[in-house]
Structures are given as C-alpha cells and as structure tokens.
Amino acid sequence: MHTLIFSISFSVAVSIFLKLARRGGIRVDQAIAVNYATAVALCLWLLRPPLDTLFQQPPAVWLILGLLGVLLPSVFLIMAAAVRRAGIVRSDTAQRLSLILPILAAFLVFHEAVSGRKAFGVALALCALACLLTRPRAAAAEASQAVDTVTPEDETRGSAARGWPTLLGVWAGYGCIDILFKQMARSGAGFTGSLLLSFALAGLLTGLWLLFRRARWHARSLASGLLLGVLNFGNIYFYIRAHQTFPDNPTLVFAAMNIGVISIGTLAGAGLFRERLSALNMLGIGLALGAIVLLFPR
C-alpha cells in the first residue's frame, strides 16, 4: 500500500508545483523538458539500469515505450489547446473522467475478475469523482491541475463546440497513459531500463518541440524543471511499482490514484490556497475513501 501512498503524494506535489509555477511566471513547457532530463539522471543514479542490455527490449515493449514517449509530452500540448478552446474547468473534468478508460481496461484487457464488492467500489469511485468535480466555477478554475503549458493570455474561455476534439484528446490521452503504464508493469521487461527509455523518449520529443517553436529560454523555468523532475520521477516510479505490487487488482491502482489525487489535492487546495469546498466535495472525499476500502483486496 505504501507504493500507492507515495505515488499519490508525489502526484499532488506535482500539482502544487504547477500551481505555484504558474503564479510565479514559470514557463512550464521548458520546465517539463528539464523534468524529463532530470528523471533520466535520477533513473541512472538511483536505479542503475543495465545499460548493456538497455536496447534489447521485446517488440511489444518497444511499442509501449514509443507510445509513452509520444503521449507523455503530447498530452501537455493537447491540454493547453483544450484550455484555450473549451476552458480550464471543462479540460480538468475531461482529465479526471479519463479514469473510466483504465477501469474498463482492467476488466476487458487485463481480465480482472468482477465481483459484486468490486463493482460497488467502482460505482462508489465514480460517484466520488462526480462530487469532487462539482464546484463553484471560480474554485474549479483555481483548482485545475491542467495548466501545464498555458500562459495567462491563453486562458480565455473558448466555445465548447470548438473545443470538443481537444477535450476528447485529453480524456483519451490520460486514460491511455494509465493503461500503458499498467501494461509496462506486467510486460516482464526490465523495469528500470523501460522507465529510463520512456523518460528519454519523452524528453527528446519535448526538446525537439521547443526547438521547433524557437523557444526563448528562461533560466528560472529551466532551473525549476529540476524540482519537477524529482517529483515526477517519484510519481511514475511508485505508480508502476503499485501496479507490480497489485498485479491482479489494476482497478484498485487506477481508482486509488485518480480518486486519491483529487481528494488530497482538494484538501491541499483548501488548506494552502484557500479554495472553497462545498458539502458535496466533502461527501466526495468520504465516498472516495469508501471506494478504496472496497477495492482493496482482503
């Protein structure tokens, strides 16, 4: 269980970082590029993957790594477009509703056994999600964790009709990333080497994108990427470890991560940033805890 707790904690810390970075004028797209380089360095230093066999991965693993290398940075860009066209609140909701995809995959792709207790836990998790996402508009906009590559001038609310393709991209992108990490955890390939390659590919593509845009480099933004890299490395490392710890219960990991991050993030927003909570939000936190208890294996 400690792997899930650590992963949730690091994920919430990433969200807090992004909120503070945006307020401090950090260019988060540049911080994201350094974040992947930092994650690569941490992987080499702490995990010491076997470099002599690094590229000797099965074709199926290379496919997973290639998809992650593209999706991890691309979802930031899609999220930025969604915020510009459909607004922060709708974009954040689309990201959270992506939980539906990995839960479906747990039963349809990973063949997790369905029981009445587990089905009730999933239903409770979705109810908790609805309660936690129901907020006053101003509070929801402040609480959004999806402002990664957005500058203040990008935040003009657009039309939902124009923005629905990007919202669909956010929903599918985050859901697919969760599924791919689970697939990586069960692939049997070298864990540390796979993690290193996924960070390296994502960092390479992010760097190329910034060069293509002829970005003006910002020293403070680049330096802040070091901290983001530490937090993001911890989040992904423990998330994959959680899937390895509960190989037969992916629903627990998917639901606990998403609902746990939203619940703790909601409390952190209220405590650190004075975001308003309603009685419905507090009910959502209670339902989330109940869902995790139901999904946890006996």
Rank of each mutant, 00 (worst) to 15 (best):
A13D: 06
T266H: 09
G173D: 02
S278R: 12
R298T: 05
V89W: 11
F273T: 06
A146N: 06
A141V: 15
A291W: 08
A139V: 02
L51C: 08
G116Q: 14
F10D: 07
L71V: 00
S91E: 07
L211K: 09
S98L: 04
F273Y: 14
A113R: 15
L197M: 12
P50Q: 11
R186V: 12
G290V: 06
M282C: 15
L97I: 12
L71I: 01
A256C: 06
W62D: 12
T166N: 03
A39E: 10
L18T: 13
P136H: 10
R298N: 08
V70L: 15
A141F: 04
G203M: 01
R84Y: 07
V293K: 13
P136C: 06
L195N: 00
I292R: 00
A279Q: 05
V70K: 01
W209T: 15
I64F: 08
P250Q: 02
A143P: 02
Q95M: 15
A291M: 13
L210C: 06
V28C: 09
G25P: 07
A86K: 10
A113Y: 05
I100L: 13
G286Y: 06
I262P: 03
R48L: 09
R298C: 01
M257Y: 09
D148N: 04
I88D: 09
A189W: 05
S11H: 13
R213G: 08
V170T: 10
S263Y: 05
S115E: 10
C127Y: 09
A270F: 11
E112D: 12
V34K: 05
L97P: 02
A138V: 11
A81G: 12
S263E: 05
V122N: 03
A140Q: 13
T149P: 05
V28E: 14
R162M: 04
L63N: 02
